Amino acid sequence: MKQPNISIAAAAAIVALLLPSVALAHPGHLGPHTLLSGLEHPVTGLDHILAMVAVGLWASQRGGRALWFWPSVFVAVMLAGGFLGMEGIALPFVEPGIAASILVLGLLVANSAMLSVWAGAVIVATFALFHGNAHGLEAPETGASFLYALGFAASTAALHGAGLALGLAARGADWQKFVRIGGALTAGVGGILLFV
């Protein structure tokens, strides 16, 4: 059986997940909150990386319309949550919501859960609201908030793309077990963040 080639994007996702310098919190951002700062924000916290890559992985397992719909829903709702945060509206339980997203999305990937496209979209949208609100609460107070939002949306889409690429490259049964193991490990991190 021919083994699938892992794309450069998928390899980059693996490297990003294994970097020891990636922290669960968000270390200092690059200067003022601009496009660059927005691009940086989702990739400076392992919590965001794991959840966003998991959305792509889960969408790749589900296939069909989920391939583009779930990542699109996540980005759109995340922006809505971000704009709420930029207006100073902090949702309750943002950090537990983010930790729960890692746990639940990891479990969905680990179990290759085949929910309907709409049920998956509701789950993804719920968690996107928390991630977006966290991004928005750290937004600039200046007129650069639009660029900041554009940046974190672009980084999020790239992380979803990395998850999709990894999941699609691993479509063969021999590789799919590694995706499911990755989902289980992701859920474990979410459980630690949520309950410890």
Rank of each mutant, 00 (worst) to 15 (best):
S7P: 04
I8N: 00
A9T: 15
A10W: 06
A11M: 11
V15E: 04
A16E: 04
L19Q: 07
L24M: 13
H26D: 04
P27T: 10
L35K: 08
L35N: 09
S37K: 03
G38R: 12
P42T: 05
V43R: 07
T44M: 14
L46R: 03
L50M: 14
A51K: 13
M52G: 02
V53E: 03
V55D: 10
L57P: 05
R65L: 12
A66G: 12
L67F: 12
W68A: 15
W68Q: 05
W68D: 00
F69S: 13
P71D: 09
S72I: 06
V73A: 15
F74R: 06
A76T: 13
G81A: 14
L84D: 09
E87I: 00
L91R: 04
F93S: 02
A100N: 01
S101P: 12
L103A: 14
V109C: 12
V109Y: 11
N111S: 15
S116P: 05
V117M: 10
W118S: 14
A121H: 12
I123D: 12
L129H: 09
H131L: 14
G132C: 09
G136F: 01
E141Q: 12
T142G: 06
T142P: 00
T142K: 01
L150H: 04
A153L: 08
S155Q: 01
T156A: 09
A157D: 02
A165E: 08
L166D: 01
K177Y: 01
R180C: 01
T186Y: 04
A187H: 11
A187V: 12
V189F: 13
V189N: 00
V189I: 02
G191F: 15
L194E: 04
F195R: 03
F195I: 10
F195V: 15
V196P: 00
V196Q: 07
